[in-house]
Amino acid sequence: MIKVENLVKAFGPKLAVNGVSFTVERGEVLGFLGPNGAGKSTTMRMITGFIPPTGGRITVGGYDMVENPIPAKRLIGYLPENAPAYTDMTVEGFLGFAAELRGLRGEAKKRAIGRAVEMCFLENVLYQSVDTLSKGYRHRTCFAQSIIHDPDILVLDEPTDGLDPNQKHEVRTLIRRMGEKKAIVFSTHILEEVDAACTRAIIIDRGQIVANGTPTELRQRSELAGAVTLRIADADAGTVGQKVRDLPVVRRSEVLDNNGAVVRVRAFPQPTVKNGDLERSLYELAVREKWRLLELKVEEGRLDEVFRSITMPDTKRRVEEGTK
């Protein structure tokens, strides 16, 4: 549905987006991750046809966004960053305006507004002027605008920004539900959202894609992935750490917690170790040493750690460049 090839955007001498390529098919929810200023919004603005790319190609539903923008734009629903809306209009008027520009009239328009209002929980503010709305309501009003024509493609720039935890949860559920039938791209810097809503995630940094995969695949890139954490009662931290480290399958171990009564130790496997060998060896060690094993947990890896390890060096470098 969305095909982006080698997308480049230059603002003066600065490359905001530098050679980004990806595709999104129907039934996919693609999460767009990255630090602030990484080029997420710029990419989305190019996909939706707001700004022209400096180089590369964007195809939306078979239409080239640069050469044939009108039919391409028809397929897209777009929630821009900061959820802009005409402040002098009522919610109903604003949604009606969006519906009419989407070619909906009469009964179809009324139905479309009703559906969007229901999905975004806007019944209470329907006749209220947009500038009297709270941020959450305004955000949902703009979100309602993006789904008013039940588009095949949704591009959402930080759809949960400024919402309270309940609303965040609702929007994520909505995205996941709609993602079964549509192609959705959404940007966020909240990592739990990737788990909650995405089928695939892309991490973008300084205009380039630095990681692309399912949330599980990304997590496996974490240093933590495959490590085993043990919780043992009534043991000496030093001895436990030493014994664990002495196992041939363990590359490195660290004592996380030691409050006297309970010790928490994490063991990282050697790169050559097969799946399952580390936890088996550790369990056997605990039995041999007669440790009171309270917990043995295989770590899945954490997205935030992957995110940091991929984007951190660049962020640091940028800060240093900024201070010079």
Partner: peptide, 14 residues
């Protein structure tokens, strides 16, 4: 100022 230009020009209008 409002950012609605982005909204308007990503609608299927020229």
């Amino acid at each position: 100022r409002l950012g609605t230009m982005e909204l308007l020009l990503t609608m299927p209008v020229s």
